[in-house]
Design a protein around this nucleic acid. Structure first.
Lengths: 341, 341
DNA sequence: AAGACTGATGTTATCGATGTCATTTACGCT
DNA sequence: AGCGTAAATGACATCGATAACATCAGTCTT
């Protein structure tokens, strides 16, 4: 009675107040007990087909919605998976910018189908002592292999899937990543095939993914007697500009630049072009990721949608109690103007 | 030490089962009651400083984590906001591809700071009768103004923020969108300034955002006596190719193409260039969004990061019980090769 | 026809945190 | 000493759903 009073107001008051309908209300309407409603909505065969249909109809008609918190509390399952993104502390924006959306699209697609909610959070947020984690599993996106992040996530004792290079000795964690070594190999073979012999690699080997790309590249050009010089460079376009400017000052002596990512490659192009060098005649430039779809840039494409679906699939496996298995996703060379006129 | 052994012990508390520590456990350890722990963790002044510190220390040491479901159930707040994305039914990927990630970055940044979880879901998922919504508010991303989606979201009686054109008569909903009319105006003025007089607009006015862009463009070229012809075209590169091919067949008679989005502009470029037309000499082409950062494409840039932060801010206002207010975000003209050599 | 059994429904306890109200302790004041 | 008051702590009920166990009507068995 008091409750139905409150409900009268819901319509007008909209989201300002008003108590939503519960299973008990629905049970009263249907003339059955709460538990029968619960069973009916879950399609339990314990409830007569006819009763089930009537309850569902009532639920639909009254816009009844299950209370997620109550169910989670009782069943001890959150019915959700949390994706942990590394945010650039400076800008507060996700590192690998446009790429991850595609991955998230893949995740969303898979999880929505399985009725799992997808929660996004940042590493800074989730590791803070007072953060409240509401998830059955975690998916970690790091920029390369960030061991600290990885260890932090392990402490939650939740099923864990990591985007990045596989690491040994963690057989309860699923690692998913592109085949960076193969990507490096493709680029190396391409540059060697173009006759380039003095290659400048831009990137920081501290990131396992970068180290893999470099290793692949180095291996591929070995037989052509090309020389690969490495300069440490972070992932930003600006960082690349600075490094290239320095190299030009020192006296440029390269016929190719292999960058660890597309933005880095663009930064290199910026400075080289404004210094009057011609691409690809004087210097060939390659990127990695095909994040930017720049028609100038030869790069290695990763399949981000597949990445998302693979990550989600691995997580569902873990949630189903299966063993953790890792996956190495295929990559593809995309040749554009910066290496071939 | 075999893995199975570890699982029996520590691992048993790992994700195979095992019960996590609760407030009651922590209370027992600290020699106080549950409620005191609850208060201490929330920094209540009702608990002595000293006791508070000890409890927090214990919590930290034992890796205690608040149970989100229990708290949500009791407090009737989910402490989360759900972003509803429109997914392309064919590919299962978010429509407005790379852009929305930046927006999501903005959302994430703001909500994480306020300790709100950000949940992603799709429209198809959330409207399904059996979906479980766990949110204090909804943020809707539609492709343009999708009235059906909007009405569906309203039914949840939750604070609602919508990305898109503002609509009248909904004073409890906050609308946030870029100033599409101004964007159209900028493009129109630019094209008119270049002396273009026969403009082909590609886009579907059924989308309010597109209608606004067209209206701005038409208004801006009026005084130059340019003629704007409209051809309905969906948002894909392929759709644009088809339309342009048709127009070429009919006998081309335009000196500019204004596309409703960047992919559409690229589609136009594809066909025009392969038909031997020169850009921008024969035909100037413009896009909208600066989604692709294509060095060829003159376009109007929207500030997606600001969009995300604005959307989140509006939501926090609503959650704080304030009135709904809408916002029109600034846009900027980016001139590139496709209109100016 | 009595007991075993099946199918459908109900009753009660429970998940973990927190709002509400009660209680205890310590201290100051007349 | 006795009383009032504020500060600190605790007991109990509660949020809404569901697991576990109980009940009851009808059917089958022999």
């Amino acid at each position: 009675m008091k409750r139905s009073d409150a409900k009268e107001k819901v319509g007008a008051a909209s989201h300002r107040g008003g108590t939503a309908m519960t299973m008990a209300d629905l049970a009263a309407l249907a003339g059955v007990s709460k538990i029968t409603v619960s069973r009916a909505l879950r399609d339990s065969s314990l409830v007569r087909e006819e009763v089930r249909a009537r309850i569902k109809e009532l639920a639909e008609a009254h816009g009844y919605r299950l209370n997620a918190a109550a169910r989670s509390l009782r069943t001890r399952r959150a019915h959700s998976v949390t994706a942990v993104l590394e945010m650039d502390p400076a800008s507060g924006r996700p590192y690998s910018d446009p790429l991850i959306l595609t991955v998230i699209g893949g995740l969303l697609q898979t999880f929505a189908m399985q009725r799992y909610r997808l929660v996004l959070t940042t590493r800074a947020e989730i590791v803070s002592a007072t953060s409240v984690v509401d998830a059955d599993g975690l998916i970690l996106f790091g920029q390369g292999a960030n061991d600290e992040a990885f260890q932090q996530m392990r402490r939650f004792n939740l099923p864990l899937v990591v985007w990045g290079s596989a690491r040994a000795a963690f057989d309860d964690v699923a690692f998913v990543g592109s085949d960076n070594r193969e990507g490096g190999r493709l680029l190396g073979a391409h540059l060697a095939g173009l006759g380039r012999r003095r290659i400048l690699f831009l990137g920081d080997r501290a990131h396992e993914e970068v180290a893999d790309r470099l290793a692949g590249l180095t291996g591929a050009v070995r037989k052509s007697a090309a020389k690969v010089t490495t300069r440490i460079c972070q992932f930003s376009r600006e960082a690349a500009r600075a490094v290239i400017a320095e190299e030009l000052d020192r006296g440029w002596d390269y016929d190719a630049v292999a960058a660890c990512s597309d933005p880095v490659a663009l930064g290199a192009l910026d400075v080289l072009e404004s210094a009057g060098m011609r691409t690809p005649t004087d210097v060939a430039v390659t990127g990695f990721d095909d994040a930017i779809h720049d028609p100038r840039l030869t790069t290695v494409r990763q399949d981000w949608d597949l990445a998302g679906r693979t990550l989600a699939g691995k997580m569902l496996n873990l949630l189903a109690g299966e063993e953790a298995t890792s996956a190495l996703l295929p990559v593809e060379l995309v040749v554009r103007a910066s290496t071939k006129a």
